[in-house]
Design a protein around this nucleic acid. Sequence first.
RNA 1: GACCGGGUAGCUCAGUCGGUAGAGCAACGGACUUUUAAUCCGUUGGUCCUGGGUUCGAGUCCCAGCCCGGUCACCA
Length: 491
Amino acid sequence: MADESRESLEDVRMEKLRKLAELGIDPWGHRFDGHQSIAELRASAPPNEPGADSNAGPTVRVAGRIMLRRGQGKVNFLQIGDWSGRLQVMVGQKQVGENGWKIAELLDLGDIIGVDGRLGYTRTGELTVFAESLTFLTKSLLPPPEKWHGLTDQEQRYRQRYVDLFSNEESLGVFLGRSKVIASFRRTMAEKGFAEVETPTMQSIAGGAAARPFITHHNALDIDLFLRIAPELYLKRLLVGGMERGFEIGRVYRNEGLSPRHNPEFTMFEAYQAYGDYHSMMDLTESLICGAIESIGGGYIRKWGEATIDFTPPWPRRTYAELLAEHAGIDPSDPSAVKARAEEAGVHTAGKDPDVVMSELFEAVVEDRLDGPIFVIDYPAAICPLTKRKTSNPAVAERFELYIRGIELANAYTELNDPNLQEELFRKQLAGQKEEDSMAKMDDDFVRALKHGMPPAGGLGIGIDRLCMVLLDRTTIRDVILFPLMRPEHQ
RNA sequence: GACCGGGUAGCUCAGUCGGUAGAGCAACGGACUUUUAAUCCGUUGGUCCUGGGUUCGAGUCCCAGCCCGGUCACCA
């Protein structure tokens, strides 16, 4: 015993594994058919009638990981968990027989087992499977985290997400919720007649957004490629091709810093609708997000951190100029007033385009106050090189961004389809700033595509991760990304 | 990149004025056939993030570094 006590926790479990093998049991298990999920089983459970015979309940089969174990002499109470919930199992020496009891004595927290038995209630009213036989499904060789607190260390939760998921029910719930949000998006798009497409994630020109790209290399062609920062320009080529309604859900990559709202790879939803405009995209945005809320439940009035957000549609649509006037207290049509107010707000204005100064003032003064959901519409044209200008006022671009609690969740345009203007805007911006910093990188093939005729269209992008943060009440993007980027553990 | 906070047992955490390492859970041994984070008795378990320094003596103080988190910067 003294020798045994010096063994590691893993060694102790290895020893139990060996004993299982001696009993002729495969510690790594096999196919296990015909079990019900714990949630299904709870939903179909008969009511608890006092004095009912627990041996008369329905026969059931469940499978799951052992989350809690309470030994009580010749009976053990287990709590097993699957991805739908947790359930108590009673294992009695007499009830499971000699072999079953030998298995029961070798069980550890974290092991995965199958249980056949009758469903009933204990004298305290707890829904319980009274085990008649146990099937060993998988040995866990490492101890799970503390049973009450779970895994709380942020670093370990991200690095060992597999442990976080099985030990923190809330975490699993967030990712199942994320899955529902995405499924709901696909359903809504299908209902509206959109086709899902896939476009290149490796591109020779990283266009469609302003962000530093990751660079990779293709050996056979001996060319450098960029991981895409947006799918936009390819999806618009599809409009030219006659794909009238298309959308893509996929990963984009931006070589930038990490923060509670930024991960270098994240999931973008983009949709393009021929013969629509940015107002069509606002309607679509509301449908998509309201549909997602319906699918995850909880209603339109939702908690987010300390805040409460009311998603009841329709959401206000306010112009950029109005909001700037309201929050900055200036006349946005007066460039000198904008410049003075921007400097007051700490924005460096020297050598910058007046629209860029206005944009930075907006970010400094307005953004954080947009509790939302609110559509900010009609942006200064110079910061929108891919957007159609208003016919009535070419200084304004038909663009909106959706804000919630100061977070930009969606961005959409009436798409610019004039190839000559597009080419000019590419050249103008190229002349004015470093290519890397510009949204407008010259893309000759894209201009050629526009010359063939792209129908007037609305286009929309929604940041799926940020949407999930807001809908699933998480304040950091790492809580909605299964494996967020981390520095490697060992160098 | 800057600033702030953190890093102690498998997990969750305490550690006073600088005096040589603690609890709960888990594990191991024992009691217990209706428990609910079961309970009760006993036992084991430590590179105190790393490397220097000060000191008779450092988990604790100082310096440098590593990793994580937060804020800012960056980032449409």
